[in-house]
Design a protein around this nucleic acid. Structure first.
Lengths: 173, 173
DNA sequence: GCTTTATGAATGAAAG
DNA sequence: CTTTCATTCATAAAGC
């Protein structure tokens, strides 16, 4: 793949024309059967090594790449969860106690996370207190960005007259 | 202009009015282009300052936050690495059996041109100015393979030594 | 054959 | 940095 370049009309602009012959993997029934079997056996997130082996085995039945196996598991797992979640919500709507015991395994923490405090640590400018190693640069950055006022940051950095048109001059010295 | 913002392009788009309730950042093609350009220029882990500047510049094309830029680079970098890794392994495997009567499955016209100057200038103080740039085709990332498999199930499909033929021994023990 | 559905692929966000 | 999750985009296959 990688050469087809699937055009993505995201953001409004429709890229007319465009052959985009992105041929995607089309698993054979045997391949699907094996994959499903593995999934049912409990395999959910195969390791790289496992994926390689599975892919090799399945290549007997037809063209296949490692990434196909990877995607298959990702999608399968995600969709199962998705389905399950829908059911969960559905039951929640009912709001009836389930006569069914068995401490529900489904952790629906996500569902009512809708109104989570979000733990917005004001600004915390008190002590930078750089505790070595415990926090990576990336994390610091992220936290920093959290305060970022979202709406089009157009502070005058000395960007001069860059707002006139797409200057794109990204000199970041 | 494409007019990006957070409108869901598909179908009618039920973003609901007034709420500004946009889910996740949906980069415009211009934004992606610039980011890709920067990446190709060698920028991999922009500093906080750089991120802010980039974000400011890109805000011209649509709503964007610093953290979006941060995440973009993080993801892009990680996925490029993953892709490369996977392709390598795949090519390595490509030499395996399929000897049977396989009907020319050897149609792997997907030899990625991992060719890229690859001048990973860690520090990168200045940029070669954006300069047009054709639609960079480097936007096909690939997910990585997990390494979870916390002994979920005791299946032990005998994939390991039997690479002679599709054993597919899915012993679930 | 055109519409709907199923699913492969991609990627933003975030947790670890 | 690595790994996982959620949501969306794109398209081949199925249904009408």
């Amino acid at each position: 793949m990688d050469e087809g370049f699937c055009i993505k009309p995201r953001g409004g602009g429709y890229v007319g024309g465009g052959g985009t012959k992105c041929g995607r993997w089309n698993p054979t029934s045997e391949q699907v059967k094996v994959l499903t079997d593995l999934f049912r056996s409990g395999l959910r997130t195969p390791s790289t090594d496992q994926i390689q082996k599975i892919s090799s085995q399945l290549s007997f039945y037809g063209k296949i790449e490692s990434k196909n196996v990877f995607y298959w598991f990702q999608n399968h797992k995600a969709r199962e969860r998705q389905k399950r979640r829908r059911v969960s919500i559905d039951e929640q709507k009912e709001n009836h106690y389930q006569g069914k015991n068995s401490s529900s395994i489904t952790h629906f923490a996500e569902i009512n996370q809708i109104s989570e405090p979000e733990r917005v640590i004001e600004t915390l400018q008190l002590f930078p207190l750089n505790s070595f190693g415990t926090e990576s640069e990336a994390e610091k950055q992220l936290r920093f960005f959290a305060n970022d006022c979202k709406g089009t940051a157009s502070f005058s950095y000395g960007m001069g007259a860059e707002m006139d048109h797409p200057t794109l001059d990204l000199r970041l010295s």
